Amino acid sequence: MRYNVDLSRGSPTPALRAWNEVYNLVWIRSHGLRGTRVGVESFTNRYRSRDDANCFMVMWLRNLDRITKTLEETTQLNTLTFLDVGCGTGIPTLYAATRYEFADLRGFDFEAPLIEDARRNQEKFPKAGRRCTFDVGDASQLKLPKARYLLFLANPFGERVLEQFISNNLDILASTRSYIAMVNDHGIQNVMATSGVSLVHRNPTYNCSLLSVGDADG
């Protein structure tokens, strides 16, 4: 199923940018969460993939809503494990837990202090937080356990690590008919060039894409 194949990069109007920023600010502050931006220079780990890492910053939470709305048109969320790849302080994962009925919600990051912050943020959500798990892991080396996933990538690293992560886990993703959500979707052309990966929908204003693996929506 293909809704839109426009790969041009758009830019929201100043008014839209301001609205999305305010939405983030209100939601994050209302829950007393910590860690909205951390620069690469502050990372403490020694993984080789650090050289291809981007700074952690909380993407616009409404972009998660935009992608999930499209996903709900193709499959039932309760059949999917939400996996935030490079989850940082866990804010998008916790946001998803408060709004959507995924079967499971997980996040991993190679930076241990960020995972510690994610677990502290998790404590702010006595009910939804119990549905989430946060672990330390290096995307360039990680092999996923078998599950049907929504991989959520908010531009956590460069194309080299992205290709390694997808390649290492392509068999699992294809056999379970998983999905990939990309926010600020740099590198989407390379992901789409991977065998078995196809574009379901792209929002060219917000540069958000939903892709299927192994005919996920077939």
Rank of each mutant, 00 (worst) to 15 (best):
S49Y: 03
S49D: 02
S49N: 04
S49R: 04
R50A: 07
D51H: 14
D51V: 14
D52F: 15
D52H: 14
A53M: 12
A53L: 05
A53Q: 08
C55S: 14
C55L: 15
C55D: 13
C55E: 14
F56R: 01
M57G: 10
M57V: 11
V58L: 05
M59F: 02
M59L: 08
M59Q: 13
W60F: 11
W60D: 15
W60M: 11
L61G: 04
L61S: 08
L61D: 10
R62Y: 12
R62W: 12
N63I: 04
N63W: 00
N63R: 08
L64W: 04
L64F: 09
L64I: 13
L64H: 09
L64S: 03
L64T: 06
L64C: 06
L64P: 00
D65L: 07
D65T: 11
R66T: 13
R66I: 11
R66V: 11
T68F: 09
K69W: 06
K69R: 15
K69C: 04
K69G: 12
T70E: 11
T70F: 01
T70P: 00
T70D: 08
T70V: 15
L71V: 10
L71A: 01
L71F: 08
E72R: 15
E72L: 14
E73N: 10
E73L: 12
T74E: 15
T74I: 12
T75M: 12
T75Y: 01
T75W: 00
T75R: 10
T75P: 01
Q76P: 03
Q76W: 10
L77D: 14
L77Y: 15
L77S: 12
L77A: 11
N78T: 05
N78F: 06
T79H: 13
T79I: 01
T79Y: 04
T79W: 08
T79E: 13
T79L: 14
L80P: 07
L80I: 11
L80N: 07
T81M: 07
T81W: 14
T81G: 03
T81N: 09
F82L: 08
F82N: 04
F82E: 00
L83Q: 07
L83N: 09
L83K: 01
L83V: 09
L83W: 02
L83P: 00
V85E: 00
V85A: 01
V85N: 00
G86Y: 09
G86K: 01
C87N: 02
C87A: 05
C87L: 07
G88L: 06
G88M: 05
G88Q: 09
G88W: 02
T89M: 07
T89D: 04
G90C: 06
G90P: 10
G90E: 09
I91D: 04
I91V: 13
I91E: 06
P92A: 03
P92I: 08
P92E: 12
P92H: 02
P92R: 02
T93Q: 00
T93S: 15
T93E: 05
